[in-house]
Nucleic acid binder design. Structure first.
Length: 301
DNA sequence: GTCCAGGCAGTGC
DNA sequence: GCACTGCATGGA
């Protein structure tokens, strides 16, 4: 019998249930599916359409290939994708120590322990998702993303369901027009932003490795914000989710500000002093703090 | 009708 | 550099 599965050992503290729950949060997510204890995801790996499921089991993740052929190369690619996605290599001890020192936030250690900062390994996807999410509520943002993904992403059918991958920049750069995006309820400007970014990726002007090769966070930020439609929020969101820059705070984020208000950590949304002071206490862990604050906004069913 | 949502570009100092 | 203003698009 063919073994289409493998395990990824996890050395760090991980509560897969917490992560899985965050991946859903009652939103209409189209890029993965929660099925019982498992998370199902489609990816194009080395040109091959792969559908896999992940389950947490003790000190490892159990990955099963549901569609596509497993070989060493594919296993490596998927392993590194999952490792990035769930930030499996980071030791959170220091972050939890900092949280415990904070009166209003200490509870998070107990509540959310083992929740990893869920990332978006594909930089183009991270930026696109940020652009879609600019200044609109998340429910609507997920709807728009679904339309985009269902039209331009790769599809994999399995069982009674269809699974999608995020569209490639080449596909969007060559096949999508502003009018196409408008019909999916992109605003005029966002349609332009997305196409601009797609062609910037397409002509090699920007990519994950281009950014990684830059000397520091500031220059990465500048490289991103030089593109029309990418402001500080979008740039830092992408750096946080895709490059995992620990200090890339998505300043001005509506959810972040609401969470800070809800915890009584700022007087109002312009209380920049308190925000800076808080993040200074979490130096090196700023994005983890942002992520846990976002987590605090989501309500369990 | 009003307010808000995981903002951005432009302007004025 | 910063604060403020207009703008865009829906949803509650």
């Amino acid at each position: 019998m063919q073994m289409d599965s493998f395990r990824i050992p996890v050395q760090q503290e991980l509560d897969f249930g917490e992560c899985r729950w965050f991946l859903d949060r009652n939103f209409d997510e189209c890029l993965h599916v929660i099925n019982g204890d498992a998370v199902l995801k489609a990816l194009t790996v080395k040109g091959q359409h792969i559908l896999f499921s992940i389950e947490g089991s003790g000190d490892s993740l159990y990955v099963k290939i549901l569609q596509g052929k497993l070989n060493n190369e594919i296993e490596q690619e998927i392993t590194s994708y999952i490792s990035e996605w769930f930030d499996l290599k980071r030791n959170l001890t220091e972050f939890y120590a900092l949280l415990l020192e904070h009166e209003q936030l200490a509870y998070m250690v107990k509540e959310y322990r083992g929740l990893r900062l869920i990332g978006i390994p594909d930089l183009f996807e991270a930026i696109s998702w940020a652009i879609i999410g600019q200044q609109i509520n998340l429910n609507f943002a997920y709807k728009v993303k679904r339309r985009l993904v269902e039209k331009y992403g790769d599809r994999i059918e399995y069982g009674d369901n269809v699974y999608f991958t995020f569209p490639t920049f080449n596909k969007l750069a060559t096949e999508a027009s502003a009018e196409d995006l408008r019909s999916m309820q992109f605003s005029n400007s966002k349609a332009i932003y997305l196409l601009t970014v797609a062609s910037a990726f397409s002509n090699g002007e920007i990519s994950k490795s281009v950014l990684i090769d830059l000397p520091d966070q500031i220059s990465r930020q500048k490289a991103l914000t030089s593109l029309k439609g990418i402001g500080i929020w979008t740039a830092n969101y992408a750096l946080m989710k895709s490059l995992r820059e620990p200090g890339s705070i998505p300043y001005g984020d509506a959810g972040l500000l609401n969470a800070l208000l809800a915890h009584g950590l700022i007087r109002d949304k312009k209380d920049h002093l308190s925000i800076d002071r808080l993040f200074n206490r979490f130096s090196g862990w700023e994005t983890y703090l942002v992520f846990y604050l976002w987590r605090s906004l989501a309500v369990r069913k």
